[in-house]
Structure formats: structure tokens, C-alpha cells
């Protein structure tokens, strides 16, 4: 358990082409993330934060470089897993939250949380959903529709949805981007708590320094490279 590597990235590059112009959104980044670690990425807009964590989260493939999750090799010099295998890894290991919550407006809070289980189900998700809503303090709202909730509550629903299938790693891209400071604070407390008590590995992208500092490690990006 101690010091086990959850994610190992070596020389990751992501190149976008716009006509003849080449953009190195991620330019040779290598890093390890330990199991149970809480890492946050900061940096100015366009510095490659989203691009990087999408690769780390197996949502996107790098142009070159290597990526392993646990002992599974995901990308290696142009070779990638099939979309199907990637989906399997994603739903087995990862939970994702984003700046927008993407809750389904016609499903209740509880149904939204249970949504992943219609595609992929680990044991006991039904109870787990209620537990999570309880833990996140929105159990009273479970039969409400997302439209009846505040932004902070909606993000908490999205967090519950991300956690319902017991992921090992939570990927959060600007989870507080749409929230005011006190709601942001609530979310940061929740993340810290999840990391400490559920041993959840958390990879966070944020502009918010206060939020970034709650992490074990803060990585700053600049023009696609890690700023030391």
C-alpha cells in the first residue's frame, strides 16, 4: 500500500496542429503519482493542465510518451489500448468531475448518482449511493431534480456520481470553477476528506490557490512543461 505508484507518466507529449502551426500542449512531462496521493495542478490558462490530466485519466491519448496505471501499460510510443479496453479501465479505476456538472435534468438526484450503475455495476452501489449522498449532506435532496439545487449541491451530486462505483482515482478539472468562494471551500473540504479517509487518489486542476494548497503536492505548469 505504501508508496505504490498509481500513475506513472514518462515523456508525455501532446501536439496539436493548427494548419502548419504546431502547439505543444504537453511538452515532455514525466511524473509519478502515488496511491492515495492528492496532487493539484495549477498554471495559467492554456498551460496544458486539462490536456495533461485528460491523458493521465485515460480520456485522451498522448502523441508520444508512456503511461501506466498501476501495472497496466496504457500508452506506449504510439500504441494505445482499444477504446473498449480504455472504457474498462476508466470505469474500473477512475471517477471524473468537471467544471460543468452534466447532471441529467429529468433524473432525480439519486437517479443521477445511480446512472453509472446502469452501464457498469459493482456490488452494493445502491446502498453506496445513499451513503455518499449522506456523507455529502444532500440526502434530503435525493428525490429532487437537479434544477432545484444550488451549484454547490449540483457539484456534490456530480462527486457522488463519480464515486458510486468505488474508483481508486478521482480526476477533477476545475470542480469549483462555477462556484462562489464559500461553496468552493465546501468542495475542497470534501475532497480533502475523501483523500484522507477513503484513501482516494485525487488529481485536481484548479485556478484557485487556496484549493490547490489543500493537496499533498502542487505541480505548476507553464507552456506544457512542469515549472520547477
Amino acid at each position: 500500500m505504501e508508496n505504490q505508484i498509481a500513475i506513472k507518466a514518462q515523456h508525455l507529449k501532446k501536439i496539436y496542429r493548427r494548419g502548419i502551426e504546431e502547439i505543444y500542449a504537453v511538452n515532455d512531462i514525466s511524473l509519478d503519482i502515488q496511491k492515495g496521493e492528492y496532487v493539484s495542478f495549477i498554471g495559467p490558462s492554456g498551460s496544458g493542465k486539462t490536456t495533461l490530466i485528460n491523458i493521465l485519466g485515460c480520456l485522451d491519448n498522448p502523441s508520444s510518451g508512456k503511461l501506466s496505471i498501476g501495472d497496466k501499460e496504457i500508452f506506449s510510443e504510439g500504441k494505445t489500448l482499444s477504446e473498449k479496453d480504455l472504457t474498462k479501465i476508466r470505469r474500473e479505476l477512475f471517477g471524473y468531475i468537471f467544471q460543468k456538472f452534466y447532471l441529467i435534468p429529468t433524473l432525480t438526484v439519486l437517479e443521477n448518482v445511480l446512472l453509472p450503475s446502469t452501464f457498469y455495476k459493482k456490488d452494493g452501489t445502491e446502498n453506496h449511493a445513499s451513503e455518499l449522498l449522506n456523507m455529502l449532506g444532500i440526502d434530503k435532496r435525493k428525490n429532487h431534480l437537479p434544477g432545484q439545487l444550488s451549484g454547490g449541491e449540483m457539484q456534490r451530486v456530480a462527486i457522488a456520481r463519480a464515486l458510486v462505483n468505488y474508483p481508486q482515482i478521482l480526476l477533477a478539472d476545475e470542480p469549483t470553477g462555477n462556484l462562489d468562494s464559500s461553496r468552493s471551500h465546501e468542495i475542497s473540504e470534501i475532497l480533502k476528506d475523501l483523500n484522507q479517509h477513503k484513501e482516494l487518489t485525487i488529481i485536481l486542476v484548479t485556478h484557485n490557490m487556496e484549493l490547490a494548497r489543500t493537496a499533498d503536492r502542487v505541480v505548476e505548469l507553464r507552456d506544457g512543461v512542469v515549472k520547477l
Binding site: K84, T87, R90, R91, F94, F98, L115, T118, Y120, R161
Partner: peptide
């Protein structure tokens, strides 16, 4: 479109 992407990221296979 975005929502379908989210469904994919929470574990939906193309067939789902």
C-alpha cells in the same frame, strides 16, 4: 454531445 461524453467517461460502452 457533452453529456454523452460524460456517460462514456462514467463507464458507458459504445453499445450502451
Amino acid at each position: 454531445f457533452q453529456e454523452i461524453g460524460i456517460l462514456k467517461s462514467i463507464g458507458a460502452m459504445p453499445w450502451d
